[in-house]
């Protein structure tokens, strides 16, 4: 029954299904790459002529590259905010014991399972009356609350394997609680905080539904710009933008992994 080589009919069937899944999951994204180099204003696949004009358009048309800039700004700011807030929440939840802790935990984590549209109208309704809809503040606030639960989950799992005896040791050596956190606890839970941050960035960089409500022609994130483009016209710049998004996402994952590797080897 072992090994990867299909022998039984059941195994052959399973590999057949898995092959379909692999195609299903990867093929669509691979299709976009050639589309972005198309020479024509069409989604014709495969393209019959090739060019870089959609990339050129992306970087010269301000609606496109401004939205990339907004996305990066919102992504970085909301990632920073949710990393700080998420670490605080996870740390306090780990250290405090009280009845109703399950409720508070649910309060902090529930946005994770909220249907996107429900979050969107909830956020839009009040941000509108506060006049922060359509502002950078509004985007950062919305993306922060949407990614916060993921950071909390990630930091909590790091805290679960943290050796609390180390905090006692630091205190016995004269470190105040704040110094203990800065010099001992934080460096050791940093992997969890960073993974949470990576989640937060990717979530923010990917978010469409809430951003669609908050957007204005002046403050608009890249996925929103793509959405509007797809619904309004045939513009292969979307394919170029997709390729750029994939590159940014893969790059942020690779950078975190390299950072990881470096930390590991510098420790060793």
């Amino acid at each position: 029954m072992r090994g990867g080589i299909p022998r039984s009919p059941g195994r052959i069937f399973a590999w057949g299904m898995a092959g379909l899944v692999m195609l299903w999951l990867t093929a669509p994204v691979l299709v976009l790459l050639p589309l972005s180099f198309s020479g024509r204003r069409s989604f014709r696949f495969p393209p019959d002529t090739w060019s870089l004009r959609w990339y050129e358009n992306f970087f010269t048309d301000s609606t496109w590259h401004a939205s990339l800039l907004t996305s990066l700004k919102v992504g970085l700011l909301s990632t920073a905010a949710s990393m700080i807030l998420g670490t605080m929440a996870a740390f306090a939840l780990h250290k405090l014991y009280f009845s109703g802790k399950a409720f508070v935990t649910g309060f902090l984590l529930a946005p994770m399972i909220f249907p996107g549209v429900v979050s969107a109208i909830a956020i839009f309704g009040v941000y509108l009356t506060w006049h922060i809809s359509g502002t950078l503040t509004g985007f950062v606030a919305a993306h922060t609350v949407l990614s916060l639960p993921f950071v909390i989950v990630s930091v909590r799992s790091a805290l679960r394997i943290f050796d609390w005896e180390l905090e006692k040791a630091a205190a016995s050596l004269g470190a105040s609680p704040f110094e203990t956190f800065r010099l001992v606890t934080l460096p050791l839970i940093l992997p969890g905080v960073l993974i949470g941050g990576l989640f937060a960035f990717v979530i923010s960089f990917d978010e469409v539904v809430v951003s669609l409500f908050l957007q204005t022609p002046f403050v608009r994130t890249l996925p929103v710009q793509m959405y509007l483009s797809v619904t309004e016209s045939i513009d292969p710049t979307v394919a170029a933008a997709s390729t750029i998004i994939v590159i940014v996402t893969v790059a942020s994952i690779l950078i975190s992994m390299l950072f990881w590797q470096k930390r590991k080897t510098s420790d060793a």
């Binding site: 050796d163 005896e165 006692k168 040791a169 460096p187 050791l188």
Partner: peptide, 12 residues
């Protein structure tokens, strides 16, 4: 000064 059973050295 305290010496802990499992040393509690800071691993980083």
């Amino acid at each position: 000064g305290i010496v802990f059973q499992h040393y509690a050295l800071f691993p980083h």
